[in-house]
Every structure is written in C-alpha cells, then in structure tokens.
C-alpha cells in the first residue's frame, strides 16, 4: 500500500461523516484533524472513543462539527475544552452524552456484526433518559427481576487515528492501544496517519503482531511526522503541556481561537508554500 498525502486523506472525508476518534492518551490524529480544518470540512459528527480531547475541540472551534457523541470532553490538565463548551452554550452543536463502556460496547457489537449488546450499570442515570436509542429489558435468562441496558451496534463511517508505523502491506502498529483496533474493526473505513512506513510485514514479527492492526481494516495511510502532537505517542514522544496550555488560553475566545488557527493550523501550509 502506498501512502497518500495528508491533504488527500482529508479530501477523502465527506462532509457529514460520522468519525470515531480516540482521546488524547490513545493515539488521536491531530495532524488529520488540522488537515480537515484546512479543507473546510462541514457537518462532521464526532464519536469520542470513549472520550474526546484536543483534536475534537479544534474541529469544533473551526466550525467543522454539528454533533459530538462522547463520554466527556476535556483538555486533561489544561482543563475544560473551551470551544466545545462555547459551542454547546451557543447551541451550534448537538451533544449526545454517553458513558465510556457504553461507547466501547456499541462498537464491539458492530465488530461482531450483532445488532445490540447488553451492559450492566447506567440504569438510573440521566444519560439513559436522554438516549431514546438505548433500551432496558428484563434479563431473559433468569426468573429474578434483573433489568439490563441494551445498546445498539454503532458503525462509524470513518475511524481516524495516528499509529507509530505502517508497513508495505498496509498493516499499522498501535502497540497496546487496542481501542484503535476496535474502532478500525467497527468502522466502514479507517484512515490512519503514521510517523513512518517500514519495510516488510509487521505481522511476520511475533513481537509486533499483537500490537498490529491488519491492513484488512485500513483503507489508507498518510505519513504525518509527530502527527499526534501536542499529545503523547506511546514511548515515541511525550505530551507538550505548554502547547496545550497555550491553546486552552487562546481558545477561550473565538478571536483567540482564530488567531491560534492561523498560526498552528494554516501557518505550516503558508510556510511550505513560501
């Protein structure tokens, strides 16, 4: 599989797509999120697996997003996600609150190709009261009273994440962050940015194979060095806390966010064109 360019990858994402993304501790593709802002994507529906972070806030701030389904949105130590909070208050996005294991379970149902899966807990939470698509039923395997939550399978249009490397066969390596495998399995398409492409076949290496997602699930790979930054990538690089703190400060206002975008999303492009 030949890598495509980051901008070509962003161009292949249609407006209105349901995009599943892992959060800041779990290999988000910040590079592709920024490329989607540059291409002026609109109407995106984001799924946080199981929560959302930096990349989601940037996409919301740039007006690319109409809906967020997630269990939380946060910038971690840098605090609340400012553009998410502002868009929620302004009513420009729909927020569908969930709880972490419910999102995993809906994706696992899609992985298995079954229409729904049960989950314990949640009954009595107001999350359930605001999810008409979720159901509660009596456990059919007991005569005792036992209410159980049923969750519908959820198959995102596109899984987006940042892996450490891809190989010539289109396999990608994510180490122990196996939630990326779950979203790749559950989604219709998986678009993966990587630090580098290596020769050979990752699945031939017994030690790398368990952290590898088979190319069966991967539609396209694009090279984006330091593509998870400012968040960490396994043992490759750490979080740039000062960068996130600066973002959190500037993105408090719409004007500050626009200024941040001009420098950090469009700036690199301008520099490259010069």
């Amino acid at each position: 599989m030949n890598p495509i360019s980051l901008e070509a990858m962003a161009a292949s994402v249609p407006d209105g797509a349901l995009i599943a993304m892992p959060p800041d501790n779990s290999l988000p593709s910040v590079a592709l999120a920024k490329a989607l802002v540059r291409r002026g994507a609109r109407g995106l529906r984001l799924l946080g697996v199981p929560v959302s972070g930096f990349a989601t806030d940037v996409l919301i701030g740039a007006g690319c997003v109409v809906e967020v389904q997630t269990s939380a949105v946060s910038l971690g130590e840098a605090g609340f996600a400012p553009r998410f909070s502002a868009a929620l208050k302004a009513g420009t996005i729909t927020v569908r609150d969930a709880t972490c294991p419910a999102i995993h379970t809906m994706l696992q149902a899609a992985e298995k190709g079954v229409p729904f899966m049960p989950l314990r807990g949640v009954i009595g939470s107001d999350i359930l009261a605001h999810r008409p698509d979720w159901r509660v039923m009596q456990n059919p395997f007991t005569d005792e009273a036992d209410q159980v939550l049923l969750l519908p399978a959820l198959s995102p249009d596109i899984a987006v994440f940042h892996a450490v490397m891809a190989d010539a066969e289109g396999n990608v390596w994510v180490g122990r962050r196996r939630e990326c495998a779950t979203i790749a399995h559950a989604a219709q398409r998986a678009l993966v940015t990587v630090e580098r492409v290596v020769e050979g076949n990752l699945l031939e290496d017994e030690r790398l194979a368990p952290g590898t997602i088979s190319g069966t699930y991967i539609e396209a790979v694009a090279i984006a060095e330091r593509g998870a930054q400012p968040v960490a990538l396994l043992d490759e690089y750490g979080v740039d806390a000062a960068y996130v703190a600066n973002y959190a400060r500037m993105a408090k206002t719409e004007a500050g966010f626009a200024e941040w975008c001009a420098e950090h999303v469009f700036g690199a492009l301008r520099a490259a064109a010069e």
Binding site: P50, V51, T70, S71, A72, V73, S74, F80, A81, F84, S85, L88, K89, V95, D97, A98, T99, C100, P101, A102, L119, R120, G121, V122, S125, D126, I127, L128, H130
Partner: peptide, 16 residues
C-alpha cells in the same frame, strides 16, 4: 441537560 449553565467535561465511566 446537557449543561446549559456550566458544562462539566462529562460522565466518563461513572455511570458504570
């Protein structure tokens, strides 16, 4: 709902 006053980050895994 879903936080028209102050919005907190969200429920995380608490409901489970």
């Amino acid at each position: 709902w879903p936080g028209t006053g102050v919005r907190f980050p969200g429920s995380f895994g608490s409901a489970f």
